[in-house]
Design a binder for these strands. Structure first.
Lengths: 210, 210
DNA sequence: TATTGTAGTTACCGAGCGGTCACCTGTCAA
DNA sequence: TTGACAGGTGACCGCTCGGTAACTACAATA
């Protein structure tokens, strides 16, 4: 059995519930049935455990983003060529809607990504570095992605004209907001899921041309 | 000089920067130039200081909400009477826009409300009670307010038809999101303020009938 | 003037923390 | 068989924490 990985798993579980400072080395060792001294055979310090979790999640996060990222065509011009327009016209409001919901459902049910998100949410005020990592991962990256997407959809004539950045915020921010409530108050999960669905629907009603 | 109030002020400053657990009694006493033992002449425990801050902010928060709350007419019918329609027709997109920006500017520049918000943001994962207080204050209350407002504006024919709840989320969520970035990374204040302005503008472009 | 209450002090307590130490034990290659 | 090593253990270290005890300085009051 790989103790080192078990330690990382347990530490993440604890950090995501009680934060870095709220978790003691004994808290991590206890559930694993080993003494806290044993932890120091695998890691130099508590901080190193935390850092390793962050590093690992960074790697996995990049993988997910890679897969998530639809490699949409972009010829750099104001107008798309005919072939590209066809690509975007194929993107229906309903399809996008289902994409988002799938993403949300994954983010909220996958234990690992949920714990990492929660850990970063709790720890974001601990240091400037962590704060920037949180914003970078869960806000800027997603907004940037949506902004590019909407830019293309506007060019392709799928959705109405508008400021792509503002549209991205209008589309994505309610999703984070409801995911935040869902994280803090799991008993409201159903309500939040429905709200996200309603939101996405309303958004496409307002923006799509057809 | 009222030491008790000075303690509450300093404690709030510390809690909002380092959280409840990250702040020691000496951290609070030090800047006031007194010993930590002196704190116990005014409060029974560290927890009691925290609780008192929460209580006080609750009172002030209710006052602010009271003032913020436009007492718009609502006759309970599907359609408004002529007089009420006039009230709502007087509400221009630009006027609402400036209202929101004023609210945001106040929230971000007023030291007290900023510290309280930051303290609650940091502490929200500490207990279910605090978590619900955070959501209640900064999400549910604001969403509820906006929802009612949009309901009326739709009835009055000022903005296009749509799901008022979804509209409220679409309007308010980006505002919280940018305020969050602003809180975490103050160097991005200007960027966030502009983004909020652009968002509000885009929103009214998309929803207003004229 | 004597008494009392308030708001401060220093020194200290027990508990818990991150981390270290000397020691133990099973595995496995020389 | 033996010696190195990985991966454990419990006892312990120094430190900080929230909180307490005993004492003091001083202002207000009877």
């Amino acid at each position: 059995m790989n103790t080192k990985e078990l330690i990382l798993e347990e530490a993440l579980r604890q950090f995501s519930q009680k934060g870095f400072e709220g978790t003691s080395m004994s808290d991590i060792a206890g559930p694993l049935g080993i003494s806290k001294a044993a932890l120091y055979k695998h890691f130099e310090s508590k901080q190193q455990i935390f850092d390793r979790i962050i590093e690992e999640s960074e790697e996995k996060y990049k993988d997910v983003l890679e897969k998530l990222s639809v490699h949409y065509p972009d010829n750099g011009n104001d107008k798309l060529n005919k072939k590209d327009v066809d690509v975007y016209s194929g993107i229906s409001a309903k399809g996008l809607c289902e994409n988002v919901l799938a993403f949300v459902r994954f983010s909220m049910s996958d234990e690992y990504s949920r714990q990492v998100r929660r850990m970063l949410t709790i720890s974001q005020f601990q240091s400037r570095e962590l704060s920037e990592m949180y914003t970078g991962r869960y806000v800027d990256a997603m907004l940037g992605y949506d902004e590019k997407l909407f830019e293309q959809l506007i060019k392709a004539g799928v959705i109405k004209n508008g400021d792509p950045k503002a549209l991205a915020a209008m589309f994505y921010a309610p999703v984070i907001m409801y995911m935040g409530i869902w994280d803090r108050e799991p008993q409201r999960a159903k309500e939040c899921e429905k709200a996200i669905r309603d939101h996405v629907e309303q958004f496409f009603l307002m923006t799509s041309k057809h």
